[in-house]
Design a protein around this nucleic acid. Structure first.
Lengths: 235, 235
DNA sequence: GTCTATACCACGATAGAC
DNA sequence: GTCTATCGTGGTATAGAC
């Protein structure tokens, strides 16, 4: 922002970047609560007070760490959704919208960008970290992109009311978080990063199939609408 | 445990119970990280060191708070599942199994038990609290009951392999957590507690319909299995 | 503007007196 | 069983050097 443009980038990163890199590495390794200001500053070889000077607080630091990676991801997601919408037009289905949500992360992780190999590890941490700081920031950060995707889902699922769609998307997103938060995350990420194209397609299609089934479920329910009353009286 | 049986219960609760009650109230109000030993002991009007003496640590205290409520709930869940299984036999469907998971909490909250009205609030906190202490304990606590329900789901969904069922249950449970963790939790709980029977049946049947749709989704996926490959090549 | 040293307060935990 | 005193660690705030 207010850094002079004429200043040449030195061979070693400046203090602010060193703090960001150190915090990100420690965050990926152990999550937010395993982070201490003294650990970060020692790892970055800067003074303890440097974090507060450059970022204001520990919370603001980790938000900067998250934004540095998630801004790019959400841009790619919206771009991919735009392309799919303009290419497919009325043939757009909710599976395409979900692909636009999940594919960009995989692609970034396979690009030649620095630390690309750890990108999905970072995402796994960011999406599953239990701290309210991380969760609140991600929720806020997703608000704009999520609205964009909500409209796309509305187009592909016109039979659902706004309330029902919100309910089911909430359901589906919670399911995704649950999968990422589960003990299988490591295995899941391994398949993402190391698996062949077949594995990647298979896993993503399996995930998307499930979410599509939940989104497309008939409104009155697949069974007798009064089934629940029946159960209540049964026990 | 090692409290003498001959000691009569005094009119006011003893130190251990007062600590439990105070911790539970503060936990419901603000979650685990908003709890401090000094707050708890001040609210319970006991000494700061009393928590460590009676429970060993702050983590152990909150585990006692959770166990006091969740043990009863899981017993009721397993009991209801037993009754449904013996009553319905081969006619048991996965909707019944899910009802056995969700109904007991609603019933406890409407019983005349002390603090029953706050029971669902407590459950919402317990299931959505971000602290690893709470999450780990609930996961461990659910292991036995969850295994019992897993077998029941296996019976009602014989077309799914063990791995696929685990994947989908993981999905469904994550969805439930996502719903509870969302901003609509308050409204959801209001409907649970204040709504008429119609609302309760409607909401639960809507939730169960969604989860049943995800569990019953056809294995190859509702769309072309190669659709994902098609998407990959499209953008 | 940047960076450093250092002080401050709240936290959970514990030893030892009573 | 209960209490006081104290320890180590956490995030934060600030005065002052460069």
């Amino acid at each position: 922002m207010n850094r002079p443009e004429t200043l040449p980038r030195s061979a070693v990163a400046d203090t602010k970047t060193r703090i960001l890199d150190a915090a990100e590495a420690l965050f990926v390794a152990g999550g937010f609560d395993a982070l201490s200001m003294r650990q970060i500053t020692a790892s970055a070889q800067v003074n303890l007070a440097a974090v507060n000077y450059h970022f204001g607080s520990k919370d603001a630091l980790i938000e900067s760490v998250l934004a540095r990676q998630l801004d790019t991801l959400n841009e790619a997601r919206e771009t991919m959704l735009d392309r799919l919408e303009s290419t497919l037009g009325d043939q757009l289905q909710c599976e395409h919208v979900m692909a636009a949500m999940f594919l960009p992360a995989v692609r970034i992780s396979r690009s030649g960008a620095p630390n690309a190999d750890r990108y999905l590890q970072f995402l796994g941490r960011a999406y599953t970290d239990p701290s309210s700081v991380v969760r609140d920031f991600i929720d806020t950060h997703y608000l704009q992109t999520l609205g964009r995707f909500f409209q796309a889902f509305q187009r592909t699922l016109p039979q659902l009311s706004v309330d029902d769609l919100a309910f089911r998307l909430h359901f589906a997103m919670g399911a995704l978080s649950g999968i990422l938060a589960g003990g299988d995350t490591q295995r899941l990420l391994k398949e993402f990063t190391q698996g062949q194209g077949d594995h990647e397609s298979f896993l993503l299609s399996r995930l998307i199939s499930l979410m599509a089934a939940a989104l497309k479920a008939p409104l009155p329910g697949p069974t007798d609408p009064n089934m629940f009353d029946h159960i209540v009286k049964l026990v």
